[in-house]
Simulated scan of single mutants.
Amino acid sequence: MAIKLPEISPFKARVEEIDRMMNAPDFYSDARRSATLAREHMKLRQLLDNYAALEKAKKQLAENEEMLEDPNGDDELRELAELEIPELGDKIEALEKKILAAMIPPDETDSRNTIMEIRAGAGGDEASLFAADLYRMYSRLAERRGWRVEQMSASESGIDGFKEVVFSISGEDVYKALKLESGVHRVQRVPETESQGRIHTSTVTVAVLPEAEEVDVQINPNDLEITATRASGAGGQHVNTTDSAINIVHKPTGITVYCADERSQIKNRAKAMKVLYARILQVKQDEERAKYAENRKKQVGTGDRSERIRTYNFPQSRLTDHRIGLTIHSLTAVMEGELDEVLEALQAEDQRLKIEALMTSTKS
């Protein structure tokens, strides 16, 4: 059965609008904006090409069916027409799926770099050790994909673990790939300190924030309470002897950011502000989501951090993502950053739900 696609005219109008912008003399003066628009233009052109191919295939199918119904038609042509009908049907179905996927409104933050925050939850030392394991897992994933990781702040547990670690990942479509990692990750394994061999369950919270730009979030300097302090540490050469650590409080939201990774107060302040912008942007996005979250309870990646999204069971070498019912038995490889199967399955389900929402809005 043919799908009733959304109206194509808004997409044609958008191509014409970008064409006009690209012909302006100052189009390339803003390199980032011009690159973004060029990518959008290319995707829209592909959408229009696919739509034209769909119309052509539908017309051909109608002609073939009409030929079959003509009692006076040529038998050989009718036979050829009948043979082509299943192939045309498959082509139409494939093009409709491509077009629907291309019509999903783009997430403006998909191409952004990402700030990730990993915090130990329930489980004491074991939770902090798993926080370090997840940090290593995402770092290995970034290494495999050619992304760059920069640690921004960390609170170590003293047993090679992290109470909290904040880091940025930069590269192509980082946020698009990682945004569905936000939530509570549960680990089940036997701790090294467990003499009875009992399995312990611990939790770690992962937050994935798109790196904000100043145009996304306006911060009034008067709303900031900035304090320089002496960085604390385990002792020895790693303890700063100057007030280089920076603590920033955004008074309207109560968001606090602390950064002491660099010996330079200026560098720590720049890193802290980057995290602050990302957290405030996340608050704004969460407020927007809350307006329609009730209608999209099954949406993958809502960012609800109270939700258990995934379980890592080490005795069975099993990873289960509870949102999509995916279970794989290659946990060792996953912890080495081989997350492709999981990330691709999450993105596929996310796209399916968005297409479903698009079709629902088309019918109404």
Rank of each mutant, 00 (worst) to 15 (best):
S153Y: 09
A142E: 06
A53I: 02
E338D: 14
S330M: 11
S306W: 08
L319E: 07
T242K: 09
E194A: 09
S29M: 11
S9I: 11
K12Q: 15
V204T: 12
A212G: 10
E336Y: 08
S361E: 15
A131G: 11
A207S: 15
P86I: 03
A81Y: 02
M103A: 09
R305M: 13
E17P: 04
I324D: 04
L326Y: 03
P221H: 07
F314R: 14
K43C: 01
R186P: 11
L343S: 06
L326K: 11
E294L: 10
T362E: 13
P252S: 04
A62Q: 14
L141K: 10
E143A: 13
L224Y: 07
G146W: 00
H200R: 10
N240G: 08
S34Q: 09
S195M: 12
K354N: 12
G146T: 05
S202M: 08
K274R: 15
N23L: 13
E156K: 12
S139R: 13
D75C: 00
K97R: 14
M116A: 12
K59F: 09
L141Y: 15
L47C: 06
P106A: 15
Y312C: 10
S317F: 03
D340I: 10
S182P: 05
V300W: 02
V184T: 15
I18A: 04
A272D: 05
E55Q: 14
I199K: 02
N220C: 05
E84W: 02
W147C: 07
R279N: 01
K267S: 12
R186I: 09
F130G: 11
V174Q: 04
V300C: 01
Y258L: 11
E156L: 08
N220L: 00
V257T: 02
E7R: 14
Q188W: 03
E69H: 12
T327I: 09
A57I: 07
E84M: 13
K12E: 14
T256W: 00
D133L: 03
E288D: 12
G161R: 04
I199H: 03
I3A: 02
Y175K: 06
I199W: 02
T320A: 04
K163A: 11
Y258M: 12
M21H: 09
G161C: 08
K297P: 09
Q151A: 10
R39Q: 13
A38N: 13
